[in-house]
């Protein structure tokens, strides 16, 4: 198991952002964390990265404890945050070099930067400042920079939010390629269409895990309940968060 969470809870004052989430992700899996804004996705991810300390529960990432061994985790994971995470006044190459300086990189950092520039087809624009790049390219550079230390776990917070479909497709191609090589990927999204791309999904609503499993599993499980042979993940999500708890759902905040 690359990620193993056991009833992880995070409270901010009286507000429970993440409520008893247990989750297991295998090596080489692409796991989607699905939920609306404020469902607790980012909080959960921040605990997995070791940025936030859980109020209760425990977990391990790559075999390291998320509370006691946060430093070990930080050295080994790649993280691409929801916000734009590059220095826009620096060039593509300078950004990559900077991150190569922060992480333990095998061999020389110059070589690693060169390797990534090649792999992500950034060679031609390495001297360009990030602010002058189109959105899709920026995201590509951000992705490359999160790969700088060849992490075995890649955590992506809403990587394709608001991206056009063609760009999104090639992004997923790349992700599948990495997964095939054994990299585990945890990706958050509030696009249901995106959730369909994952091997495994975990659906979050108001901090609680409402459904979890591989996509075919979930489809089979809900086919009967939803009276359709091939239920969509959106249908499943609405079913698990909606009926019966609609008022409860509304009264939050």
């Amino acid at each position: 198991m690359v990620i193993r969470l056991d009833s992880l809870t995070k409270r901010f004052g009286a507000f429970t952002a993440v409520d008893g989430v247990s989750l297991e992700v295998k090596e080489g899996e692409v796991c989607g964390l699905i939920g609306a804004n404020g469902a607790g996705k980012t909080t959960l991810i921040r605990m997995i990265c070791g940025i936030l300390r859980p109020t209760r529960g425990e977990g391990s990432v790559l075999g390291y404890d998320i509370v006691k061994e946060r430093d070990a985790i930080r050295h080994r994971i790649g993280y691409m945050s929801q916000k734009f995470s590059l220095y826009s006044d620096m060039t593509v190459e300078e950004n990559l070099r900077f991150f190569a300086g922060l992480y333990p990189v095998k061999g020389s950092s110059a070589d690693r930067v060169e390797e990534l520039l090649e792999r992500f087809d950034l060679e031609e624009m390495k001297k360009q400042r990030v602010e002058n790049l189109a959105g899709g390219w920026r995201q590509r550079v951000a992705f490359a920079s999160s790969m700088i230390h060849s992490p075995s776990l890649l955590i992506l917070d809403e990587p394709t939010s608001g991206v056009d479909p063609v760009t999104r497709r090639s992004f997923w191609d790349l992700l599948y390629g990495l997964a095939e090589e054994g990299t585990t990927v945890l990706v958050t999204t509030h696009y249901m269409s995106e959730a369909e791309q994952c091997d495994r999904v975990a659906m979050l609503n108001r901090g609680r895990l409402v459904a979890e499993g591989t996509v075919p599993d979930l489809r089979n499980r809900f086919a009967e309940i939803l009276h359709t042979p091939r239920p969509t993940l959106e249908g499943i999500f609405i079913h698990t968060t909606g009926e019966g708890s609609a008022d409860d759902n509304r009264a939050r905040g």
């Binding site: 899709g136 995201q139 056009d164 063609v166 999104r168 992004f171």
Partner: peptide
């Protein structure tokens, strides 16, 4: 075809396919 298919089709036909990825 889904809406993503429809959208990509128009992107292709308008020569807007040269996106980043």
């Amino acid at each position: 075809p889904g809406w993503e298919d429809v959208f990509s089709r128009y992107m292709m036909e308008n020569g807007k396919e040269e996106t980043a990825w």
